[in-house]
């Protein structure tokens, strides 16, 4: 039991988990800061990886990446474990809890009974912090929720061993040791440059700015290639990846803009505050895309023209992202 663990609700699961764990271990940290230092912002359209049988579109780096990158940049020693055997995985969790350690875990949302039924799809990248055990239930700080929640042992076991894409394999992670002091400015700078690099110069056509252009080009081909029903399902899926619970809205562009404001203070760099505004506009553009896409899904806009318009909105997003990250890179690099 960990009565002193301070649960804070956040917009996105993993950055919330990271911020809450770091704060618990003595480094006061906002969710936006955890997301930024964890270089969480990303884009990729990966048609050959399927999530709920539909192509993966992601606006963030893979599960576990934010915690790993943020702690590494700050020089924090962490441990991470995956398991083959569910029983072993449960024992390991119990031992850590007995030692008074809050433990991060990757889970599949489908098996978490405290989630609203409407959100229970097979999505295996959900992060939460287990903070205690009461009889046959675990006490959980799930950053998406306002309060801590209880989850029966058997359900958490299923969630930790969810199968399919992004299978968590019982993954646990926790802070082992905090350094004497942190070099926050250096971490912030490095993390910003990393995001600029992945968005601007990843050599894969599916990633970053090029990935957005690629999705835009593909999108216009869907109606002829897939027929109306499948096309609309794919479009709806993109909205869900961009807007559904745990994205912080607008595919993480707002949360990143919030980070840039904090970064401006940490680095004493006013240019970053200005670029935060550009990032906010970018988030608004993504929301316009979601709005139009939803109208198409509801049949309130004609298919043919709308797909051209959707594609051109995506191209605009891509161009804006390119401008933002190019300027960001020159604002931070010296």
């Amino acid at each position: 039991m960990n009565p002193e663990f301070h649960h804070r609700q956040s917009a996105h699961c993993e950055s919330g988990v990271t911020a809450n764990l770091l704060s618990h271990h003595g480094l006061p940290c906002s969710e936006a800061m955890a997301f930024g230092v964890g270089a969480g912002l990303f884009f990729a359209y990966v048609p050959f990886i399927k999530l709920n049988f539909l192509p993966l579109t992601t606006y963030r780096i893979g599960p576990g990446g934010i915690f790993k990158k943020a702690t590494k940049r700050l020089g924090i020693t962490v441990r991470q474990q995956t398991f083959r055997n569910p029983e072993e995985a449960e024992n390991a969790l119990d031992r850590l809890l007995d030692a008074g350690r809050p433990v991060g875990a990757q889970t599949g949302v489908f098996w978490l009974p405290y989630f609203p039924p409407a959100y229970r799809f097979h999505f295996n990248g959900h992060n939460l912090v287990v903070i205690g055990k009461e009889g046959d239930e675990y006490l959980i700080s799930d950053p998406i929720f306002e309060e801590t929640v209880l989850c029966p042992k058997a359900d958490l076991r299923k969630a930790r061993f969810a199968k399919g894409a992004l299978a968590p394999k019982g993954k646990l992670y926790y802070v082992e040791c905090m350094p004497e002091q942190f070099d926050l400015p250096k971490a912030v700078e490095g993390a910003i440059l990393e995001v600029c690099r992945s968005m601007l110069s990843t050599p894969l056509p599916l990633v970053g700015v090029r990935g957005i252009h690629y999705l835009a080009r593909q999108l216009t081909k869907w109606p002829d290639k897939l027929g109306d029903r499948k096309t609309l399902l794919r479009l709806g899926h993109i909205i869900r990846m961009q807007e559904e619970i745990g994205t912080g809205g607008a595919g993480f562009r707002f949360i990143y803009a919030a980070f840039l404001q904090e970064a401006a203070e940490v680095l004493g760099n006013d240019k970053l505050f200005e670029l935060s505004g550009v990032c906010t506009e970018l988030g608004d553009l993504w929301r316009d895309f979601a709005l139009l896409a939803a109208r198409v899904c509801k049949g309130r806009a004609a298919m043919g023209d709308s797909f051209q318009e959707l594609a051109s909105l995506l191209h605009t997003c891509a161009t804006h992202e390119e401008t933002l990250f190019t300027e960001l890179r020159s604002a931070v690099a010296r």
Partner: peptide, 26 residues
């Protein structure tokens, strides 16, 4: 909770009770 800016352009966290496009997709 959603991230949004106040009058001075400063970010804050604001509770949200659902958004149309998201409801459509769900």
């Amino acid at each position: 909770v959603n991230y949004a800016v106040d009058d001075r352009g400063r970010y804050l966290l604001e509770p949200s009770l659902g958004w149309g496009p998201k409801n459509v997709a769900l």
